[in-house]
Simulated scan of single mutants.
Amino acid sequence: MVDEFQRSLQKVLVHEGGFSNHPKDPGCATMKGVTQRVYDEYRRSVGAQTWSVKNISSIELQAIYRQKYWNEIKGDRLAAGVS
């Protein structure tokens, strides 16, 4: 069975798409909903060099979504389907 985090992430990623760097977007460069700033913070926190968010791996993407979003809303405590 897929856990709620994975199920929810898949639903979010349907809407987040790929890479975007529109000049009028205050988030600047973004890949699958993760901004360059957030990606840089994550890479520094694990002792890695920063690089373009275009290069984000699936493992990094999942770690960022879990740490920065899922855990913040206490997603594991939400009822299935609400998350």
Score class of each variant (00 low, 15 high):
residue 2 V to H: 01
residue 3 D to W: 04
residue 4 E to Q: 15
residue 4 E to W: 05
residue 4 E to C: 08
residue 5 F to I: 08
residue 5 F to Q: 07
residue 5 F to N: 08
residue 8 S to I: 03
residue 10 Q to E: 11
residue 11 K to V: 04
residue 11 K to H: 06
residue 11 K to R: 13
residue 11 K to A: 12
residue 12 V to C: 10
residue 12 V to G: 01
residue 14 V to F: 02
residue 14 V to C: 02
residue 17 G to F: 11
residue 17 G to R: 07
residue 18 G to S: 11
residue 18 G to V: 09
residue 18 G to Q: 04
residue 19 F to T: 03
residue 20 S to M: 13
residue 20 S to T: 15
residue 21 N to I: 05
residue 24 K to M: 09
residue 25 D to R: 01
residue 25 D to T: 05
residue 26 P to F: 11
residue 26 P to T: 14
residue 27 G to P: 00
residue 27 G to T: 03
residue 27 G to L: 09
residue 28 C to V: 03
residue 30 T to I: 03
residue 33 G to T: 02
residue 34 V to M: 03
residue 34 V to C: 03
residue 35 T to G: 12
residue 36 Q to E: 00
residue 37 R to M: 13
residue 41 E to R: 08
residue 41 E to W: 07
residue 41 E to Q: 12
residue 42 Y to S: 06
residue 42 Y to K: 02
residue 42 Y to M: 05
residue 43 R to D: 01
residue 43 R to S: 05
residue 44 R to S: 14
residue 45 S to E: 06
residue 45 S to P: 03
residue 46 V to Q: 12
residue 46 V to D: 08
residue 46 V to M: 06
residue 47 G to Q: 06
residue 49 Q to L: 11
residue 49 Q to P: 10
residue 50 T to Q: 09
residue 53 V to E: 00
residue 55 N to A: 13
residue 55 N to G: 06
residue 56 I to K: 04
residue 57 S to N: 06
residue 57 S to K: 06
residue 61 L to C: 11
residue 62 Q to R: 15
residue 64 I to M: 07
residue 64 I to T: 02
residue 64 I to D: 00
residue 64 I to H: 07
residue 66 R to Q: 10
residue 66 R to S: 08
residue 66 R to A: 12
residue 67 Q to Y: 05
residue 68 K to W: 04
residue 72 E to A: 10
residue 72 E to I: 01
residue 73 I to C: 10
residue 74 K to N: 12
residue 74 K to C: 01
residue 76 D to S: 10
residue 77 R to C: 04
residue 79 A to P: 12
residue 79 A to M: 09
residue 80 A to H: 08
residue 80 A to T: 13
residue 82 V to C: 09
residue 82 V to H: 13
residue 82 V to E: 14
residue 83 S to N: 14
residue 83 S to L: 03
